[in-house]
Structures are given as structure tokens and as C-alpha cells.
Design a protein around this nucleic acid. Structure first.
Lengths: 241, 241
DNA sequence: GGTTAAAATTGGTACGTATCAATTCTAAAT
DNA sequence: ATTTAGAATTGATACGTACCAATTTTAACC
């Protein structure tokens, strides 16, 4: 367990919520919680505001703080905490066995669009990595990644057979994951149908992401074509005003 | 402009970022900003942390605060602020003319799954609203909504021809929009192909949302089948740890 | 009983202080 | 020039205070 005050409180509150410890799905007010936990109201507010952002609770001024009834009923939509990159991370936790097959791994001069998105200069080189992601021997994602050579000069085919996330986390001290994700749907191409075992009428979900290092440097572009049955993205949307 | 300190600072910082006022894409440190704006460091922190959450800036302890280079280049992926419900709201701002055609509007006893998600008791009734959303006369979304009668007893076919968002915002003082969204891709059905003018090989994007009132009461289930060319969802993902 | 105005409750905003932790910078040592 | 240890920088955590705004509760009034 994290040793930060607000994280401990978050965890404890979630435990209590799951155990149905709160009358009428209503939490005690912030001042009371502050007393009970022997911490400042600011720390309570920080914990509560993160839980609200994740959709676990709802806060309403003058009224109180309430449990999201959906959080109790462990609906499938709630397999995440806040936002959800879905797919591999999700599936790994459920007893399936993901694996990776490298289709192609080469260095090319960055194409125009890639150059733009990764903020590269003319003539700079990138890895183009083409991988097939499998789940229990079944192909579910065709992934094409682009990574500037200068950021990871020592990338090898062997490394690429494993998780790039883990590699970057270790090599570049990139702790958190930050990315722009764009989701779409498209008819499957002949290639998709071949690799992912799809009928012509069956589509793919498109998941394009631009990933950043902690200091904001664009690190990777990842373009994923996902078998539609394995394509799903869940999130809690919270638009103020 | 909002009269809240942190909102004014957010807006001002975004303006300066767009005007490229910061050397090397690096913002002044928090203490300096606090002096410059004549506000407390806490207020600066609040503004910065929201901008970081939205992906506008990146913060790194010991290092500084940096502009997301993608925010400058007004990339398509950046048509939002933080998260993006896409589609209608987005298109409205771009000169297209959205409209709604009501296909069906009736009251039914809540089906099992709907009853579950809206936390209704046996025998409770819901509106089932079937609408076609058009853009410049072209059908792009088939939407099926379920709303408990007890929450909106005075809903009429006339009201349903307009925006339900606007209606609820006014009638139920639900200021913000909170929802669980689930996105998928599916082959188009014969119905989809007919209504949305799709070929058999062309898919639909599925967007299912459970919307909540400010106090956490589930208000509406909305199931949208979207013409794949108009289906797109952009978001900034920020996974700590 | 229903209405209405005052009081209490409850989360939001804003300011300020102290301390810590990650990173970068500086300067001494070799 | 390179290495290294200390100092400075910079964002993060935590505590606390004061006041505000939305909502609910209470109590007075008719």
C-alpha cells in the first residue's frame, strides 16, 4: 500500500464502499471524515476529488457525497480505475495468455505524418515495428509502432518481442503512461481478414495512440487494428459546466 | 470569462501557450507564477494540475512544467478539452446542421438489463426513445434511449425531438455531464444498412452510455449505433504509477 | 397543512506555511 | 576533461484557516 495519506484514504474508502459500510449510499461529510481519519480536510478533499474523477463517487455542494451505485454492482464497465487502456492489460488479469509475434522490424526514414507527430527533423530515422498480438494463440491485434531512433538507440528485435511499455519504463524512467488516444471503426482490409481471421463483413476497431515521456517528449506512435470482438473501451466522462 | 481565480489562470496560460510566449516550451516555475499572477501557489497548482490532466502540459518534479507540443499544432486529436463526447457537440461547432428524427416513442415495462443499470424495481416503467440523428440530411446515428418515467414524468414526443441534454439541464438542474461510456465496433445489421446507408461490409461504431444526475442517480441509458465514418473518440489518457 | 424565511449543513474556492523528493546545477577534486 | 558530492531548483504532499455558495433542514407564520 502506498504510504501517502490521500492514497491510503482512497483505498480505505473504496474498501468501505465495497463492503457497503455507508448508509443510503451516502458518505459522511468532509469535516467528519477529517476527524475520523485524523487528517486535514484538504487531504480528505484530495482523496474524494480523485474518486469523483474516477466516477466512484458523486459530490454535490450543500447536499453531500454519494456512492456511484454502479461501482457496487461490479459491472463489466468498471474493470478499470478512472480510465482504461483496455485490451492487453485487461486481459492479462483474467487468466488468458497474451503473446507477441514480430512480423517486421526495420529502420526507415520517418514518413511525413510520423515526422509531424513525433516532432522529428528531415531525414531523422524511426523504427517501424509490425507486431501481431495474440491471445491464447488467436491473433487479435495488428500493431504498427513508430519510435525515433534517437530516443531508443539500442532497441533490438529481441526486445521488441516483449512489452515495449516495460522496456521504456525501465530504460527511460517513464513512470506514468500518458497518451493521446483516438478510437475509430473501419471495415476490415484483406490483410486484416487474413491475419485476424475475419469475414469480409466483420470490422476492426482502430486505436491510435501517441505516447509521451514524463517530460512531454513524444515517444511512440502506435496504430492498432483490433479484431472487433476484442475491441472495447470503457471510460468515465465528467464534463463540468 | 469565469470569475474563479484558477479558471482565469488556466485560460490565460492556454492563451500564452498558443501565442508561444514560453521559451523552449517551458513554463515558469510555480513560485514565480504565483508572484506574477499575484495569487497563492495553491491556486497556481490547481490550474496547472487541471491543464496536466487535460494533456495541455506535462509536469515533472525537479525538472519543471512543459507544454505538450501537440497542443500547439492544432491537431485534429485536440478538438476537445480533456475528454470528448464527440459527435454532435463537436460537429455543431463546425458549421454542419444536426437534426433529429423521432422513429419511435413509447412507454414500456423496463427490460431486465435496463432495470439493472437504472436501478429500477420490478414493474417500473421507462420511456423507450428511438431516434435518428442526421447531419445535413444524412443519417449518421441510430440512438435508443431509456429513461425512467419517475425521473421525467412529463416527457413528450415534442420534447424528444430536441436535445435531451438541454432539457435535463434545465428541468433537473443537472449542470455537468457524468456518464460511463463504453465503445465498441460491430458489423452493421440490415437495419443499420438501411437507415444509415451502409454497405454490408461497412460497420457501425457502438457507443453506449449510462448518464447520471449530479447526485449519482442513473438518469438515462443511451445506445448509439454510429455510421463508422462519423465515429471517432479522442481522449488524453493519464495513468499514474 | 402548506408556505416561507432563517439557520444549519455541506462541498468549493482561495490563501498560506512547512516539509519532502526528484532533478538539475555548481563547484570542487582528480 | 571527467567524476562526484553538495547546493539549488522545482513540483508534490500535508496541514490549517477563512470565507463562499448550493442545498437541506428547521421553525415560524398564516
Amino acid at each position: 500500500m502506498a504510504d501517502l495519506v490521500y492514497k491510503k484514504i482512497m483505498q480505505n474508502l473504496k474498501d468501505k464502499i465495497k463492503a457497503n459500510d455507508f448508509e443510503a449510499n451516502r458518505l459522511p461529510d468532509e469535516r467528519t471524515l477529517s476527524d475520523e481519519y485524523h487528517v486535514s480536510r484538504s487531504s480528505i478533499k484530495k482523496a474524494l476529488s480523485i474518486l469523483a474523477q474516477q466516477g466512484v463517487i458523486f459530490k454535490k455542494r450543500g447536499s453531500g457525497t454519494f456512492v456511484n451505485p454502479l461501482y457496487l454492482k461490479n459491472k463489466s464497465i468498471f474493470r478499470y480505475e478512472g480510465s482504461n487502456l483496455g485490451i492487453t492489460n485487461n486481459l492479462k488479469t483474467e487468466g488468458y495468455h497474451p503473446s507477441i509475434k514480430v512480423l517486421d522490424f526495420k529502420v526507415i526514414s520517418a514518413p511525413a505524418e510520423i515526422k509531424e507527430d513525433l516532432f522529428l527533423n528531415d531525414g531523422e530515422f524511426v523504427y517501424e515495428i509490425n507486431r501481431l498480438r495474440l491471445l491464447d494463440e488467436k491473433a487479435i491485434i495488428i500493431e504498427t509502432s513508430y519510435i525515433p531512433i534517437k530516443i531508443a538507440p539500442s532497441l533490438t528485435k529481441k526486445i521488441v518481442q516483449g512489452s515495449l511499455f516495460d522496456y521504456f519504463a525501465k530504460e527511460l524512467h517513464s513512470t506514468g503512461t500518458k497518451a493521446f488516444m483516438s478510437l475509430e471503426a473501419q471495415p476490415s482490409t484483406a490483410d486484416d481478414q487474413d491475419l485476424l481471421d475475419l469475414k469480409t463483413t466483420e470490422p476492426v476497431g482502430i486505436m491510435e495512440g501517441i505516447f509521451f515521456l514524463d517530460n512531454g517528449t513524444p515517444l511512440e506512435i502506435s496504430d492498432m487494428r483490433v479484431h472487433y470482438k476484442y475491441f472495447s473501451y470503457n471510460t468515465f466522462v465528467n464534463l463540468p459546466d
